[in-house]
Amino acid sequence: MAITESDVRHVAMLARLALSDDQVRTLTAELSAVLGHIDELQRLDLEGVEPTAHPLAMTDRMRADVVVPGLSRAEALKNAPETDGTAFIVPAITGAGEES
């Protein structure tokens, strides 16, 4: 399946990547090659084969519900570009609504 330059721009927008026109052209060709490979895989007859959910053949790795010490607030905020000493400061939000 070939992808178009507009597909690439859309995906770049979703990932908040700023691409030059040159990069869009290069990536369109490269991603088309990747998808071509996937196309080849899709032609395999996989009737009756379970999808691989994870490369590791294991399940059910969990932890007990026990509190362990985290970071102090000073440590947590240390690398933030801007804080008020208690919280991370981020620029005013425009655009898409809140999710949860």
Partner: peptide, 15 residues
């Protein structure tokens, strides 16, 4: 393993 609670001083239950 950070504790679950409501409110409190900001950014004190983080890792």
């Amino acid at each position: 393993g950070c504790p679950v609670a409501f409110g409190g001083e900001p950014n004190t239950r983080v890792c």
